[in-house]
C-alpha cells in the first residue's frame, strides 16, 4: 500500500521542467498511425469474419455465424484442389528462385567483374515491369513457341518474378558479412570451398530463409502473371478471382484466414525470439 502511494507521490512530484511538456500536437502522429492500422486491418478482419458466415450462394452478405465452413474447408468444389496447386507452385518456384537468386547475390557482392552494371539492370528490370506486361510477354513467348500452358509455365513465370527479390534480399545479407571471417578460415588452411560451406553459408541462412519466405508469399498470392500463363490450370488466387463473378465460397475465406493466422504466428514468433536473443546477447553477464 505504501509502495503504491510512494509511487504515486514520485510521479506527481517529478519536476515538470525535466520532461518536455506533452503537447497536443505530439499526439497527432500516434493517433494517425493507429487510424492507419485500423484502415490496414479492416479488410483483413472482413476476410476472417466472412469465413464464419453461414453463406448461401454468395458470401457477400452476413447471414449468421457458423463453424461449418471451418469443419469442412474442402466443402466447396475445387477450393482445395486450387489451394494444393498453389502450394505446389509456391514450393517449386521458391526452391528454384532461391537457389538461382542466392548464387547471383553472392557473385554480385563478392566479385568485381565486367558487366556488373548490366547484371544489376537485368535484376532491376523485372521488378520495375508491371505484372501485366510480364504476363503478356511470357504468354507471347509461350504462344510463339506453342508451349502448352499449365503447371510448368506457371512455375517458370513465378521463378522469374521471384529471382530479383531473392537477389536483393540475399545481397543485403552477404554485404553485411565481414570478409575477415572467410580470410580467417583461409588462414586456418580451409579451402575456398570449405570456407564457404563451413563459414559463409551458415551465416547466410537467415537471409536465404527471408528471401525464400518472400518468394513463397509472392508466388502463393500471385494472380496477374498466373492468369496469363496458366491456361486451364487453377491456383488459389485464380480460383477466387474466377468465382468472384458467381460468388466466392466461404471455404476460400477459411483457407485464406488459416494462412493468415499461420503466417502471422510464424512472423511474430520470429520477431519475439530474435528480440529475446539479442537481449540475451547484450545483457551483461552477472553470474560467473
Amino acid at each position: 500500500m505504501t509502495a503504491v502511494l510512494d509511487r504515486v507521490e514520485a510521479t506527481t512530484a517529478a519536476p515538470p521542467a525535466r520532461r518536455p511538456r506533452r503537447r497536443l500536437g505530439d499526439l497527432i502522429v500516434p493517433v494517425f498511425a493507429a487510424l492507419a492500422f485500423v484502415y490496414l486491418m479492416v479488410p483483413v478482419a472482413y476476410t476472417v469474419m466472412f469465413s464464419f458466415n453461414d453463406a448461401g450462394k454468395t458470401n457477400l452478405v452476413w447471414r449468421g455465424f457458423t463453424l461449418d465452413n471451418w469443419r469442412n474447408p474442402c466443402g466447396a468444389p475445387q477450393v482445395c484442389e486450387a489451394f494444393a496447386n498453389s502450394l505446389q507452385v509456391g514450393v517449386v518456384s521458391t526452391l528454384v528462385a532461391t537457389a538461382l537468386g542466392t548464387l547471383v547475390a553472392i557473385a554480385l557482392v563478392r566479385f568485381r567483374f565486367r558487366g556488373r552494371a548490366l547484371t544489376n539492370l537485368l535484376i532491376f528490370l523485372p521488378m520495375s515491369t508491371p505484372e501485366v506486361v510480364l504476363g503478356a510477354a511470357l504468354l507471347a513467348q509461350f504462344l510463339t513457341l506453342r508451349v502448352p500452358l499449365g503447371f510448368g509455365t506457371v512455375v517458370a513465370a513465378h521463378v522469374l518474378f521471384c529471382i530479383s527479390f531473392v537477389v536483393v534480399t540475399v545481397k543485403a545479407r552477404v554485404s553485411s558479412l565481414d570478409p575477415a571471417l572467410e580470410e580467417a578460415a583461409a588462414d586456418l588452411y580451409a579451402s575456398p570451398w570449405q570456407a564457404f560451406w563451413r563459414v559463409t553459408f551458415p551465416l547466410l541462412i537467415p537471409g536465404i530463409a527471408a528471401a525464400a519466405l518472400l518468394a513463397f508469399s509472392l508466388s502463393f498470392d500471385d494472380f496477374i502473371v498466373t492468369n496469363f500463363t496458366s491456361g486451364s490450370y487453377t491456383t488459389f488466387p485464380k480460383f477466387v478471382y474466377v468465382s468472384a463473378t458467381r460468388g466466392i465460397p466461404p471455404q476460400a475465406n477459411v483457407i485464406s484466414s488459416f494462412m493468415f493466422v499461420l503466417a502471422l504466428a510464424i512472423v511474430v514468433l520470429v520477431q519475439v525470439l530474435g528480440y529475446a536473443r539479442s537481449k540475451r546477447l547484450r545483457a551483461p553477464r552477472t553470474t560467473q
Binding site: 486491418m41 479488410p43 472482413y46 466472412f50 508469399s217 488466387p237 477466387v240 475465406n253 503466417a263 511474430v268
Partner: peptide, 27 residues
C-alpha cells in the same frame, strides 16, 4: 518489429479476397 509485422500482415491474406472485402465495405 511487431508494428512492422502489422504493416505487412494484410499480405498474409489473399490479395483478391482483400479487394472483395473493400467491395463489401464500400457497398
Amino acid at each position: 518489429g511487431l508494428l512492422l509485422v502489422l504493416v505487412v500482415a494484410p499480405f498474409f491474406t489473399s490479395f483478391i479476397l482483400r479487394t472483395i472485402a473493400w467491395k463489401q465495405i464500400l457497398a
